[in-house]
C-alpha cells in the first residue's frame, strides 16, 4: 500500500473532498435539522386538513354566515324598534348587538384578511408538500457527506483505490446536483420561503390570542342571536316564517353554528399547536438557499474528482516528456 503522495497525487483534492464531506455531515447537526425538520413535517401534516380550496372556501362561508347575521340582526333591531311595543322588546338588545357588530367588523377584517392571505398562499403550501418530507432532509446531507468522507479517507490511505473511487465521488456529486432539479427545488423552495413569510405574522402567540378572542366574540354574538334576538323578534309578534322570510341569516347562523364551531376550533388548535413547530422551521436557513446547499457541494465534488485525476495524468505526461529528454531518468545508468 502506498500513500497518495508517493504516486504523484496531490493530497489537496482529497482534503477538499473530506472538507465537503464534513460540511455535509455537520450542516444538519449545526442547524439542528434532526429536531427542527420533524417539527416542520408535523406542521405541514397538521395544516393539511385545512389547506384545501374546499376547506378555505368553507371558512369564508362560515365568516359570511356570521357577517350576514350581524347585518340582518342590526336591521331587525332597527325595524322592530320603530314601534313603541317593539322598542320595549329590543331596546335592551340594541347596545349589546351594536357592541357585537363593532367587534365583528374587527374580526371580519382580521380573520377575513387572514383567510384571503392563506388562500393565496395555497400554491406555495402545495409546492412544499410536493417536496420530500422534511424528516428526510437531514439525511440528504448526512448520507452523501458520510460517503464522501469515506471516499476521501480511502483515497488517502490507499492511493490506487482512488482511481476507481473518484468515479463514486463523481456519482455523488452528480446526485447532489440533480436532486434539487429532480425535486423541482429551484421552483418549490422559493415558494416554501414565501409560505414561511406568509405564516410569520399568523403563527405567533400574539396572533393566536387575537383569534381566540375573536372566537369568544363570535360565540357571544351567536348566543345573542339565538338566545335573545330571535326570541325577542318572536315576542314582538313576528312568526317563525316571517323571521325566516325577513331575516334568513339569523336562522342560517343558528343552523350552521355547530358546523362553524366544528370548523373553526380545530383550525385554531392547529394554529396553536404549531407555533413552536413554525419557530423551529423558520430558524433554519431560508428555503431559497436549500437547492444551492446541494448544487454547490455537488459541483465542487465533481470538479475535484475529475480535476484530481487530470492533474495526476498531467504529472505523468510531464514525467514522460522529461524521460524522453533525459534518458537517465529512464533508469539507464
Amino acid at each position: 500500500m502506498k500513500p497518495v503522495g508517493a504516486l504523484g497525487h496531490r493530497r489537496w483534492p482529497l482534503a477538499v473532498l473530506a472538507v465537503i464531506g464534513i460540511g455535509l455531515v455537520v450542516a444538519p447537526l449545526a442547524f439542528g435539522m434532526f429536531s427542527k425538520a420533524p417539527d416542520g413535517a408535523s406542521m405541514m401534516t397538521s395544516f393539511s386538513p385545512f389547506m384545501t380550496t374546499h376547506r378555505l372556501d368553507g371558512f369564508q362561508a362560515d365568516m359570511a354566515d356570521v357577517g350576514n347575521a350581524v347585518t340582518q340582526g342590526q336591521r331587525a333591531i332597527h325595524a322592530t324598534g320603530r314601534t313603541p311595543a317593539g322598542a320595549r322588546i329590543v331596546t335592551h338588545l340594541a347596545p349589546q348587538f351594536g357592541a357585537f357588530a363593532r367587534q365583528w367588523r374587527a374580526v371580519n377584517s382580521d380573520m377575513g384578511g387572514m383567510l384571503v392571505t392563506i388562500k393565496a398562499n395555497l400554491p406555495n403550501y402545495q409546492a412544499v408538500v410536493a417536496l420530500p418530507s422534511f424528516r428526510l432532509f437531514p439525511w440528504f446531507f448526512l448520507i452523501p457527506g458520510a460517503i464522501l468522507l469515506l471516499l476521501a479517507a480511502a483515497g488517502l490511505v490507499r492511493a490506487a483505490a482512488w482511481r476507481g473511487l473518484r468515479w463514486v465521488a463523481v456519482v455523488i456529486g452528480v446526485a447532489l446536483v440533480l436532486a434539487p432539479v429532480a425535486f423541482q427545488m429551484f421552483s418549490r423552495a422559493p415558494k416554501g420561503a414565501r409560505m414561511m413569510s406568509t405564516f410569520k405574522p399568523i403563527e405567533t402567540l400574539h396572533h393566536l390570542r387575537r383569534i381566540q378572542s375573536y372566537f369568544s366574540d363570535m360565540a357571544v354574538g351567536q348566543g345573542l342571536v339565538q338566545l335573545d334576538l330571535v326570541p325577542a323578534l318572536r315576542h314582538s309578534g313576528l312568526s317563525a316564517s316571517q323571521i325566516q322570510d325577513r331575516y334568513p341569516a339569523l336562522n342560517t347562523l343558528d343552523a350552521n353554528w355547530v358546523h362553524i364551531l366544528n370548523d373553526m376550533t380545530p383550525m385554531i388548535a392547529a394554529m396553536s399547536d404549531n407555533i413552536t413547530n413554525y419557530q423551529a422551521i423558520s430558524s433554519l436557513p431560508s428555503f431559497r438557499l436549500f437547492p444551492w446547499f446541494f448544487v454547490l457541494p455537488g459541483v465542487i465534488v465533481i470538479v475535484i474528482a475529475l480535476l484530481g485525476d487530470t492533474r495526476r495524468r498531467r504529472g505523468a505526461a510531464d514525467r514522460g516528456r522529461s524521460n524522453v529528454l533525459n534518458p537517465v531518468n529512464q533508469g539507464v545508468t
Partner: peptide, 18 residues
C-alpha cells in the same frame, strides 16, 4: 379564564353570570 384576563362568557350557561 382568558389568557389576557377576564373570563369567557358562555351564552348557554344557566347562570345569570355567563
Amino acid at each position: 379564564g382568558l389568557p389576557n384576563g377576564g373570563f369567557f362568557k358562555n351564552p348557554y350557561s344557566k347562570d345569570a353570570n355567563k
